[in-house]
């Protein structure tokens, strides 16, 4: 079977399109590259959606944690503490467990016991908590002058937040947030590895890497392939976040623009 044919058959196998049966014997390198790459679709799906949705929730949580009102501050603090303080591995376990019991309550919750929705919710909460802590740190270090200037212009409430505080917060938090994004994509590999079952052999990149390691009994080929895909993905994330960073800092004079540091202080 030619490699092009393999890509046709298995390129979208992870979402259920293509050959029904996975290769069972005579494994070729092409098959391994194709299927593990196909599984990457899931990693990208989980990462992108959780990150996009988590961004807004994290902003709310960070503002909540900085709020003087304890009714808002305490819940935000606890949410962040619980999700940052416990291993994702255990969060997945509890997530799956809770979703199964919710299912008994009402069929509305049915999708949650499947990975595409359930794991997404867990990852969403997880990345929200981590990003919120980063944003909170940035909120604390917004230069006093910025807010004073806003006050002087008579800005308050929502316009002041939207036009002054939020952009400054993002600028300050961006390097650390880039790291969080990288880590989030890495943690998507845990989805099918613990907690959520794989249906009809549709899984993420690690699932297929595991499948091949299991069938060929040789871990030294599939896992390095997986590693290569993730290094590529990491480079793409760094590239995209770098472009956004440039946008965020475009008003600053050339010399004062902070270079996108890939060596930030705060990592996850």
């Amino acid at each position: 079977m030619s490699c092009a044919q393999t890509i046709m058959d298995y390129g979208l196998r992870s979402v259920g399109i293509g050959e029904r049966l996975l290769p069972r014997a005579d494994f070729t390198l092409c098959q391994q590259f194709t299927l593990i790459g196909s599984g990457m679709l899931w990693n990208i799906y989980f990462g992108v959606i959780a990150l996009a949705a988590g961004f807004f929730f994290a902003t709310a949580l960070a503002v909540g944690k900085a709020s003087p009102n304890p009714l808002i501050r305490k819940p935000s603090e606890w949410f962040i503490f619980i999700f940052r303080g416990s291993p994702l591995f255990i969060q997945f376990f509890f997530g799956y467990f809770c979703f199964l019991s919710l299912k008994q309550v009402s069929p509305i919750f049915d999708p949650l016991s499947a990975a595409w929705a359930g794991a997404l919710v867990v990852l969403f909460f997880n990345t929200s908590a981590y990003s919120a802590e980063i944003f909170y740190g940035a909120l604390q270090s917004i230069p006093k002058g910025d807010t004073e200037a806003a006050d002087a212009y008579g800005m308050s409430g929502w316009p002041r937040f939207k036009r002054i505080i939020w952009p400054t917060m993002l600028r300050l938090a961006w390097p650390a947030y880039t790291n969080e994004a990288i880590f989030l994509f890495h943690s998507t590999t845990l989805v099918f590895f613990s907690g959520f079952p794989a249906w009809q052999q549709r899984g993420d990149a690690l699932y297929y890497a595991n499948y091949f390691a299991d069938k060929t009994f040789n871990p030294f080929v599939p896992y390095p392939i997986l590693a290569m895909y993730f290094i590529l993905l990491t480079l793409v994330i760094i590239g995209i976040f770098g472009i956004i960073n440039k946008k965020l800092n475009r008003h600053l004079p050339q010399t004062a623009r902070p270079k996108m540091k890939l060596m930030p202080q705060i990592i996850r």
Partner: peptide
Amino acid sequence: QSGTIQAGHVAQMGATLVEFA
């Protein structure tokens, strides 16, 4: 259980396979 002969059998016979560790 994933990686067992039973998992392979279910995948082959056409039922919906769901795998656990």
